[in-house]
Computed example of a mutant assay.
Amino acid sequence: MGSIGIKSSGSEVVTIDVHAAKGLIQTGHVYLDVRTVEEFQKGHVDAEKIINIPYMFNTPEGRVKNPEFLKEVLSACKKEDRIIVGCQSGVRSVYATSDLLTEGFKDVRNMGGGYLDWVKNQFPLKIPLNLVKDEVPLKAPLDLVIGEVTVKEPLDLLNNELP
């Protein structure tokens, strides 16, 4: 997939689909989830190197940009790190990717479609144990991890309105 047209000081945001993103995440790219902490805690991409730094916060006045976003990313990542940026549907991540490129990050890509496309493609998720309730039948095999379950076939969750 090509770039989407947002420019940031000479660098254009490159958007890749979830299939390409999954492959890159599996080969060591950092997955930067820019959703809110609340969204992240409901479930997220199953990645070895995953960081949650919200690009925006929910406030009574609506969503506002996280003023510490770049500072927080710089404290967690190096500008040379290979990073895939994702959000819920692929919108916030475009702007976050643009900001990172402007800041001088070298290898940053936006994951088009976001977490919603990841789930629709039945890619592995991590979901908190407290969201996996007895009344929700899960057909997918689960691997237990501390405080979370890894769901190998998330379509069963999507059909049951989780996460």
Rank of each mutant, 00 (worst) to 15 (best):
G2K: 01
G2L: 04
G2N: 07
S9L: 15
S9A: 11
S11P: 12
S11F: 15
S11K: 15
E12F: 12
E12P: 14
V13P: 05
V13H: 04
V14C: 10
V14L: 08
T15G: 12
T15N: 09
T15D: 07
I16H: 03
D17P: 02
V18M: 13
V18T: 11
H19M: 12
H19N: 12
A20M: 09
A20E: 09
G23N: 12
I25R: 11
T27C: 09
T27P: 09
G28P: 05
H29F: 15
H29E: 15
V30A: 06
Y31S: 14
T36V: 03
V37G: 00
F40G: 01
F40T: 04
Q41C: 00
K42A: 02
H44R: 08
D46K: 12
A47D: 02
E48N: 13
K49V: 13
K49H: 08
I51P: 08
N52A: 01
I53R: 02
I53E: 10
I53W: 01
P54K: 00
Y55D: 05
Y55I: 07
Y55L: 10
F57N: 02
F57L: 02
F57S: 01
N58K: 07
N58H: 07
T59F: 10
R63G: 01
R63W: 09
V64N: 01
K65P: 15
K65R: 15
N66G: 05
N66F: 07
N66K: 07
E68R: 14
F69C: 01
F69P: 00
K71Q: 14
K71N: 14
V73A: 03
V73F: 03
V73T: 11
V73K: 02
L74A: 06
S75T: 11
S75Q: 09
A76S: 08
C77W: 10
K79W: 01
D81S: 11
R82H: 14
V85R: 00
G86S: 03
G90Q: 04
G90L: 06
V91R: 14
R92H: 10
R92L: 06
V94T: 11
A96T: 13
T97Y: 10
L100A: 12
L101T: 01
T102C: 02
E103N: 14
G104N: 05
G104I: 05
G104A: 08
F105I: 00
F105H: 00
F105L: 03
V108T: 07
V108D: 04
M111F: 07
M111K: 05
M111G: 09
Y115F: 09
W118F: 08
V119H: 04
K120E: 01
K120A: 06
N121M: 11
N121Q: 13
Q122C: 13
Q122G: 09
Q122W: 10
F123Q: 05
P124E: 13
P124W: 14
K126D: 00
I127T: 09
P128I: 01
P128D: 03
L129C: 14
N130K: 04
L131G: 08
K133C: 04
D134Y: 05
D134R: 09
P137S: 10
P137H: 11
A140S: 14
P141N: 02
L144I: 06
L144W: 07
L144F: 05
I146K: 04
I146Y: 05
E148T: 01
E148Q: 04
V149T: 01
T150K: 15
T150A: 14
E153T: 05
L157Y: 00
L158M: 10
N159H: 06
L162G: 00
L162C: 01
L162E: 00
